[in-house]
Design a protein around this nucleic acid. Structure first.
Length: 309
DNA sequence: AAATCAGACAACCGCTCCCGA
DNA sequence: TTCGGGAGCGGTTGTCTGATT
């Protein structure tokens, strides 16, 4: 998936974005906004063209982006809208909160296109068959075709379940929708299932305070984990507790940071899983994060108490 | 176990649109 | 009204990953 990093003629980096680049872009845009994409990389300390920065922010880093599999409703809407307006991906994406045009476009090309074609074919055959018996006066109803697809594992999650980068995995199928507590334990049973050896990992030696939940952060080494096998984000954003580093910008302006958190509070819980903000949340002052965690059944934090004390 | 294939998706490229001077 | 620069959009590519042979 990741492209081999390279540079173009002018020395601009190309290819996959690194965690460090993401961090710089997030930090800059969060503080100053995207006032000029062309100039932005220069001020943000990025050796990227503005276009690349914009794409990265719009498609992956900005808040409220929904990751994970498309629901059946979303897929039906995409197919329906595509039939009506063609490749107007941005218009279609606008009807799907949290989805980007790029994501919709990719999903169309990888799975929906063929399905839509097959369905149209089937539909036409059905119509041909019917026309032998029925003299249809109008074909108006053919303009909109609904596709009823047999749910697969990738379509299992409904709109009420948390969409995380892991929600498409097989463990989701063990969800007991009738018991929320059980759901959390089954799907995200990290805490009770943690292998002792995981906590002996030198990366996590300094973790001293554990709240129940899902996201496991390591402020010492800037990593966030979903479980011992799945690191959500390496080189996660560390907000300096002593205001001395460049990363202390959130601390310097609590109003700004407050509004930043507010955007998460207003969004669905899905956004907490948006890479890499989950990790970012692990590295903000506990007094800011804890209330946020209390509001969500799905979010919590592990942090280095000594670091923040 | 290795090779091959197909699906998925991040990212680039070129074109068009829009807006301000 | 025209022109230039920036932003946005859609097409396409390149690479990874999991499934299959």
């Amino acid at each position: 998936m990741a492209r081999t990093p390279s540079c173009d003629k002018s020395g601009m980096r190309k290819g996959t974005w690194t965690a460090e680049e993401d961090r710089k872009l997030i930090a800059y845009v969060t503080r100053y906004g995207c006032w000029n994409w062309r100039q932005l990389p220069k001020f943000a300390g990025l050796a990227r063209c503005g276009k690349s920065c914009r794409l990265r922010w719009m498609n992956y880093l900005r808040p409220n982006i929904k990751r994970g599999n498309f629901t059946q409703d979303e897929e039906e809407l995409i197919i329906k809208m595509h039939k009506k307006m063609g490749n107007k991906w941005s218009t279609i994406a606008a009807e799907l909160p949290g989805r980007t045009d790029n994501e919709v476009k990719n999903h169309w090309h990888t799975s929906l296109k063929k399905r839509a074609e097959d369905n149209t074919k089937t539909n036409q055959e059905t119509q041909t068959s019917k026309s032998k018996d029925i003299n249809m006066e109008s074909t108006q109803e053919q303009d909109i075709v609904f596709f009823h697809v047999t749910p697969t594992s990738s379509q299992f999650s409904d709109t009420t379940s948390p969409l995380s980068p892991f929600s498409s995995s097989s463990e989701v199928s063990s969800i007991d929708q009738s018991n929320e507590n059980l759901v959390l334990e089954d799907e995200f049973g990290f805490l009770e299932n943690v292998d002792e050896s995981f906590w002996k990992d030198p990366y996590l030696d300094n973790i001293s305070n554990t709240q129940s939940g899902i996201v496991q952060g390591d402020t010492t080494n800037n990593c966030a984990y979903q479980n011992q096998d799945t690191m959500i984000h390496e080189d996660a954003f560390l907000v300096s507790p002593n205001h001395s580093s460049n990363e202390s910008l959130f601390m310097d302006n609590n109003d700004l940071f407050g509004s930043f958190l507010e955007s998460y509070r207003e969004s669905t819980v899905d956004s907490f899983w948006t890479h890499p903000f989950v990790a970012d949340m692990c590295h903000v002052p506990s007094e800011l994060v804890t209330p946020l965690a209390m509001e969500s059944d799905y979010f919590s934090i592990v942090y280095d108490e000594d670091l923040w004390s």
